[in-house]
Design a protein around this nucleic acid. Structure first.
Lengths: 371, 371
DNA sequence: ATGTTGAATGGTAGCGCTACCAAAATTGAT
DNA sequence: ATCAATTTTGGTAGCGCTACCATTCAACAT
């Protein structure tokens, strides 16, 4: 009996011996069952069960030079946007035998580039990357990665491989148009630090105002706060930055400045929440004096007083469908549509209902029982 | 020249040849530099640089039967609590050569058990697991995992290996005591679906009220909403459940029921936000008629109107310190303290300032400049 | 000079799996 | 029955790295 260096876990050879077949046939029965006759397949699965055999994933990865790891690059782990995406990814990966490796790019394309490099060292089976604006070097690496690459949460007509997302430009434009239709004339744009996707939303906002002939650069209120990446690794990095405080501050300044705004389109819901609180503290009537809209449509928007308008985007679906696309490709199915636009939904609620014409919608049903 | 199946990446043998040493010496120079003389070490690192050698992690894992993967189990990816923890983990892993693999247990100990099993198949270098209440089977698996196991975000006097967190019981008790000291008499407890940590907070709440002689079971308002895990994998699983809507609903019912509550301690900040909005819709004065406190201290609590009291917990630090602990152990340093209590902080703000004695604290400084 | 110790280096033999090719078995056509 | 085409199965040879043991050599004690 030869010496064993390993832990005592049964190997594929043990299974093969027990089932009375060659090791390679066991491998095939597990990986490509259709290539093995039914009789052998059965005795192999029996042997697997009897021995409690589990494959060694590291060995498999070494031998086949791919790892069954799906790498997912997200710009942030803190903002709910991407945690919803990740939830979709995890829901989508169930029972696939795939593993997920998440990299946090901190909204920094250089970090992203380095991480793509490192990820490729692990020979991933697929890569899911947030956004469509990678550096040239990143794009080149992804193009020759030799595995499916899914870009999500944005839109482009020239995907690296496949894109599943929506147009931030059109989403920004649609919400701005809603504000104009609701009767607001001086619609401000609030944002903190802007990433490429926020910029596209701003672009849509500008186009909508220009088309209506009411665009005024004065209306754009940005806060050039530190990039989140600047604080990386610091032990003080407890709260990244207070988006709500920022929204509050922006609104207070806008009110003080007297630029006569009558609505704000906030780049995200937390800013909108802060803006709402600022109005409350100044007894400014929302929606009559000032309309407020957010972006993302988190759950509290609907529950706010007044209920807040926002743009609902399909975060979970992005992650879930990306994972489905990965799975079907790894199963050898054709790529299919290379551009999938999941769209968005403008949620019109009380906070932008200037004329009071919106019928009072009940809160969407909550699945609970009072105990 | 023998046939190559692989991609053309240089291997350790190439480096060894170039440096004129044996392959194993290269391996040692990379993994245990102190065991190699300085001269060789230098020529090896030169060869590495010249060839752009990067180690194959799958091969390394197979040969050494451990993977440099740190598995992190979190109950949820959606709630900010754990995305902050994960941010700490990612900040802590930088430049360590370790990889992170996240598993989502969905607040379900059976799923957790299965995932621990699967994770162990990958032979992780360390495991970080949320909470201290694993099933007996999970605990047993973790105990004989043969790698550091860090429990985080909770407290126990009998950790599997090491625990870094805080006591939910004491946090719940401390906030309740604050409400009593602020002059509230009938303090309700709001919660949605409860996990073991919430239950401990409730325990602290009850003890504080009992000690003050004002405990009344009527005051506990739970909503037995579906467990989040019930909806797993469903394509409709867009919003998990609306915690804000729940907080609003709970407050409306509490007001209608006329049980005479004068304060609520909400199990989390989003519930508190919903409760605040409910009060606004009924013109109930916060904090004079009803005090509201949350748990977690997300950024919007401070920016709310009135600013909302909450319990600040050290989410980021839990993740970061857990990662530091893992790193130092993998470096062979001693385990050190097995129980690390990071504590918590009761943030007393306007929403529980019944007597109006709190001096108006300015918003904490926001690092931005108006552009 | 001899022996002992320890540090530095290398050779060998796997780690557990799969790619590749060859061989065997089956099928169908002639 | 014969042969070609196809399907099913197995053997061999790695994948790239490291554990284990053997070897070498310098340093020191006897």
């Amino acid at each position: 009996m030869r010496k064993r260096r390993s832990n005592g876990r049964p190997t594929i050879a043990d299974v093969a011996f027990r089932a009375g077949v060659g090791a390679i046939t066991v491998s095939r029965a597990l990986r490509h069952p259709d290539q093995v006759s039914e009789a052998l397949r059965k005795s192999i699965t029996d042997a697997v069960r009897e021995l409690d055999y589990v494959p060694n994933l590291n060995a498999r990865a070494l031998a086949s030079s791919h790892s069954n790891v799906v790498a997912v690059l997200v710009p942030s782990l803190t903002q709910n946007i991407f945690s919803d995406v990740l939830r979709g990814v995890y829901d989508g990966v169930e029972n696939s035998g795939l593993r997920i490796e998440i990299a946090n790019t901190r909204y920094n394309v250089e970090i992203e580039e380095r991480q793509i490099f490192e990820i490729l060292l692990h020979e991933p089976s697929a890569i899911i990357v947030s956004g469509t604006e990678q550096t040239a070097a990143s794009r080149k690496m992804l193009e020759k990665a030799g595995c499916p690459v899914i870009q999500i949460m944005d839109m482009t007509d020239d995907p690296i491989h496949k894109v599943i997302g929506f147009s931030h430009f059109h989403a920004g434009k649609a919400m701005t148009q809603h504000l104009l239709e609701a009767g607001y004339q001086r619609v401000a744009f609030f944002s903190g630090w802007m990433n490429s996707r926020s910029k596209n939303r701003l672009g849509g906002y500008i186009e909508a105002l220009e088309e209506a002939g009411v665009y005024d650069p004065e209306l754009i209120c940005e806060m050039g706060n530190e990039k989140p990446s600047a604080s990386q690794g610091s032990i003080k990095d407890y709260h990244q930055f207070s988006a709500a405080g920022m929204g509050r501050e922006l609104m207070l300044r806008a009110l003080d400045r007297g630029t006569g705004i009558d609505a704000v389109f906030c780049n995200n819901d937390v800013l909108a929440l802060g803006a709402l609180f600022a109005c409350m503290s100044r007894q400014v009537d929302v929606p009559r004096q000032v309309g407020i809209a957010g972006f993302n449509d988190f759950d509290y928007m609907e529950a706010a007083q007044p209920a807040m308008s926002s743009v609902r985007i399909h975060r979970w679906q992005c992650g879930y469908q990306a994972m489905q696309a990965v799975r079907s490709e790894l199963n050898g199915e054709p790529v299919g549509e290379r551009i999938i636009d999941l769209g968005f939904e403008v949620m019109k609620r009380g906070s932008t209902d200037r004329e009071g014409t919106l019928e009072a919608a009940p809160l969407s049903e909550i699945p609970f029982t009072l105990s």
